[in-house]
């Protein structure tokens, strides 16, 4: 299966849409264990991404598109999620620099680079109650599925399920990174907003690819 540049743009459009739809929900999750801004931050960032991509040169490759998304997020989101998602998209762009089409392997590379970027920037690990708790299981499920010759749409569905489980698991643990860590044990019982936005983005990707 090949994913074209147009498909990538469709995925980004879908992410913009899903973040917009969940703006209030993400903010609500953040008011329980943070400072009530995650949905607002993400929506401001992806709205800027939409504007920015409308002006990007026609012949831009997928790497450039992803890097543009990352740089736009860094300069508009703020908070913790700005540098984290910004770094994730910039690293993802580097991983597929110059490409106008993506293979299954490239999709794995994108996940790998994004996850590593978030870890390098935020120094968190799985189990700290952050976005990593949905991205890392999704990456692992995707990689394993593709290694077992499962087709990309199905592999992505498994990744979404893994992300969902990871997101739900954040409800049971206490935060060790980010603003929610100030609450310690009191953060238990609440789903992490960043893990939720990550899940939503991974789901947007899978939904678009599934329709191709």
């Amino acid at each position: 299966m090949v994913i074209t540049k147009e498909d990538v743009l469709k995925v980004i459009d879908k992410i913009v849409e899903v973040i917009r739809e969940n703006k209030e929900y993400l903010t609500e999750l953040d008011s329980a264990i943070g400072d009530a801004d995650h949905g607002i931050n993400m929506d401001r960032g992806f709205e800027a991404v939409k504007q920015k991509l409308a002006t990007i040169p026609e012949n831009s490759d997928i790497g450039t598109i992803l890097k543009t998304v990352g740089m736009t997020l860094v300069s508009t989101v703020g908070g913790a999620s700005g540098p984290l998602y910004g770094t994730a998209f910039m690293r993802a762009g580097q991983a597929v620099q110059g490409k106008t089409e993506l293979t299954e392997e490239d999709v794995v590379k994108i996940f790998e680079a994004a996850l590593q970027g978030i870890k390098d920037r935020g120094k968190a690990q799985a189990g700290d109650k952050t976005m990593i708790d949905s991205i890392e299981p999704a990456y692992k499920a995707l990689k394993e599925s593709l290694e077992n010759n499962i087709a990309l749409p199905e592999a992505l569905k498994r990744a979404v399920n893994a992300a969902k489980e990871g997101m739900e698991y954040t409800k049971n643990i206490s935060a060790r990174k980010g603003r929610a860590s100030y609450l310690g044990e009191r953060s238990i019982g609440h789903i992490d907003p960043g893990a939720t936005s990550s899940y939503l983005m991974i789901k947007a990707l899978a939904d678009v690819i599934n329709l191709l």
Binding site: A36, D37, I40, N41, R44, V74, T76, G78, G79, G82
Partner: peptide, 11 residues
């Protein structure tokens, strides 16, 4: 100054 209660950005 960032947005309300949100860290400013690197730029």
């Amino acid at each position: 100054p960032g947005e309300v209660f949100t860290s400013p950005t690197p730029d």
